[in-house]
Simulated scan of single mutants.
Amino acid sequence: MSKIRNAITKIHNEWRCYCERKKLKYTDFSIISNNCWGGLIYQKFGLQYTSPTVGLFILDEDYLKFVEQLDFYLAQPLKFIDPRMSKHYDYLYREHNKEITYPVARLGDIEIFFMHYHSKEEAERKWKYRAMRLNRHRLLIKFSQRQSNTTEVLDRFAAIPLRNKLCFTPLLYESSRCNFVYIEALKQLNIQGGDETPFTLEAVDICEVINNLKEE
């Protein structure tokens, strides 16, 4: 019976993804994200991952550096470190009240936390493979303000010279250079933790966002 249930579930999920995918004008877009949001969007449409930023997170300040100089950082090698050597170790330990057991790597002067990977070998292999798939011509740069709480961070994100930027923030902020979306739930999520995806998908029509991506 379990095999039958699993088969039915698989068929249902594939049909749901197909119906969602039919709403898109194209499916060759890439998403750079500071957390797991991008991977969940690929899953929503049943698409292969065309971005290295899947199943991981980058803290706000480091993420801004990353997208401000995207080509530079993507050209840097990953250098895995003992998680206890992370410059963010104390912060993450306080947040989660437990040791970091997933791979942590430096990419130049920023750090990447491969939360959903079992080994540094897996993390490095998939990072490289997915970075090669990146479509730089149809690219969405997405940022959720999770650790920082200042408009200066949003100013920096707005100033990044890329055309397709989407930011979810718990602050009221407007700019003609970027789509800033106020998410009140982030105020609490940023204290207690949790998945922002359901709240963000209520706030924006992700199909419309993707269909209106401008070519870089």
Rank of each mutant, 00 (worst) to 15 (best):
N6M: 14
A7T: 13
H12Q: 15
W15N: 14
Y18W: 10
L24S: 14
I31C: 11
W37Y: 08
G38W: 05
Q43R: 09
G55C: 08
F57K: 01
L59H: 04
L59I: 11
E61C: 04
F66V: 00
F66W: 00
V67Q: 01
E68D: 14
Q69D: 15
F72I: 10
Y73N: 03
A75E: 14
K87C: 02
L92R: 04
R94L: 12
H96L: 15
N97D: 15
I100F: 06
I100K: 00
T101M: 11
Y102K: 02
A105C: 04
A105L: 01
R106N: 14
R106W: 00
D109P: 01
I110P: 00
E111A: 02
E111T: 04
I112S: 01
Y117G: 08
E124G: 03
E124C: 01
E124R: 10
W127F: 12
K128E: 12
K128T: 09
R133D: 05
R133T: 02
R136I: 12
K142N: 12
S144G: 10
S144E: 11
R146D: 02
Q147C: 12
S148V: 08
T150M: 10
A158M: 08
I160D: 08
L162S: 13
T169C: 03
T169S: 10
L171A: 01
L172D: 09
C178I: 15
E184I: 13
K187M: 10
Q188R: 07
G193L: 06
P198F: 06
F199M: 12
T200P: 02
T200H: 06
A203I: 13
L213M: 06
